[in-house]
Amino acid sequence: MEVRTIKVFTTVDNINLHTQVVDMSMTYGQQFGPTYLDGADVTKIKPHNSHEGKTFYVLPNDDTLRVEAFEYYHTTDPSFLGRYMSALNHTKKWKYPQVNGLTSIKWADNNCYLATALLTLQQIELKFNPPALQDAYYRARAGEAANFCALILAYCNKTVGELGDVRETMSYLFQHANLDSCKRVLNVVCKTCGQQQTTLKGVEAVMYMGTLSYEQFKKGVQIPCTCGKQATKYLVQQESPFVMMSAPPAQYELKHGTFTCASEYTGNYQCGHYKHITSKETLYCIDGALLTKSSEYKGPITDVFYKENSYTTTIK
């Protein structure tokens, strides 16, 4: 009895394709271990004539594949690729409408935090270190965002349907971005203890939790000093293409032309909904596939993004 075979390709990165001759009487799992086709788990399936010449994702289970996976995804987590594939199996079914010149995501599976993050990423200057993220990001900007969303979920250790947080998501993504040249110098002034300067680099240099107003941050924000008295913390120097200011959701007025974009969060910790506000020729609110415009805006804002380049204080 002759062994019926077909020729397929296996890959971990969709760049390096490895030619395989597979036995049609055995499952993919018996031949390769966990195997995925377009995100779908085909591990328990036997090869079919229609699979001839198709590319299958496999887990990096030998040295060659491990090197290829690390170079593309910059992670050695053995569960990463499987999590990416199972997320992709959902995100490829989502709709990605162009809204006001940006790629958004039609609401499904509690994905409003991903839509808000995706919209924000198209408006701030950011370059990702893992080629996987950078490639998928370019495709997302062009309207094909399924891979990018699935990668975000995998890097953030999230599953489809789980509630997510924009600030946490951005923080994970910033860790995989090139923020080497970003720098922030802060000064804390206390009447009792004097003053202390701190220099922050990388992710810490672009994120701040405690106030939404970048102007206020430049002037000074009140913080408790270690001595128990009130101290003032203010920005001395900022070198970065953008800054992200966050605070627990509270009524906040966004003035046209003073910011790049913002995240609105309605609801409580267990259950809520994100919308995205962007400042173009007027203010726009993007909620999944829905767009509304207004000249002014007041609502429960939790993150505001500002364009920056270089700032030095005039406070002496």
Rank of each mutant, 00 (worst) to 15 (best):
D41P: 11
M245H: 01
K46M: 15
I124L: 14
G82K: 15
M209Y: 15
I6R: 05
K191P: 15
L81C: 08
K7Y: 14
Q270H: 15
K233T: 09
Q122T: 03
Q31A: 14
E296C: 13
Y306D: 06
A146C: 06
A262Q: 03
T116V: 15
L37M: 11
V58M: 08
K255P: 05
S263E: 04
P97V: 14
L290C: 11
S246G: 10
H74P: 03
S240K: 03
S181K: 12
F148Y: 03
T312A: 10
Y57I: 11
S181H: 15
E68R: 07
E204G: 11
T19C: 10
E204Y: 13
P130G: 09
Q222M: 10
V8W: 01
K280G: 13
R167P: 06
E168M: 15
F305A: 02
E308M: 10
L59E: 13
T64W: 07
E71M: 06
S79P: 11
K201W: 14
E52C: 10
T116H: 05
P60Y: 04
L121T: 09
E204P: 14
M26P: 04
G53Q: 12
M170R: 00
Q20H: 14
N157C: 04
W107D: 04
Y28W: 05
R4E: 13
K298S: 15
T75M: 13
W94G: 05
L186W: 10
Y274G: 05
Q134G: 04
Y234C: 04
T278F: 09
A146I: 00
L37V: 09
A247G: 08
E125L: 03
L290I: 15
N187Q: 11
T278L: 12
W107F: 01
T43Y: 11
G82Q: 15
A289W: 08
P249Y: 01
C285F: 10
M170I: 09
Y311A: 06
L102R: 12
T211H: 09
N100D: 10
T226D: 13
N157R: 10
A117P: 07
Y214E: 10
A108V: 09
Q122C: 07
D135C: 06
K280A: 13
T64Y: 11
I223D: 07
Y72P: 04
V221M: 08
P300N: 10
R184T: 05
N111V: 00
D109V: 01
E68A: 05
V189Y: 08
L81A: 00
N157V: 04
I124G: 10
K293H: 15
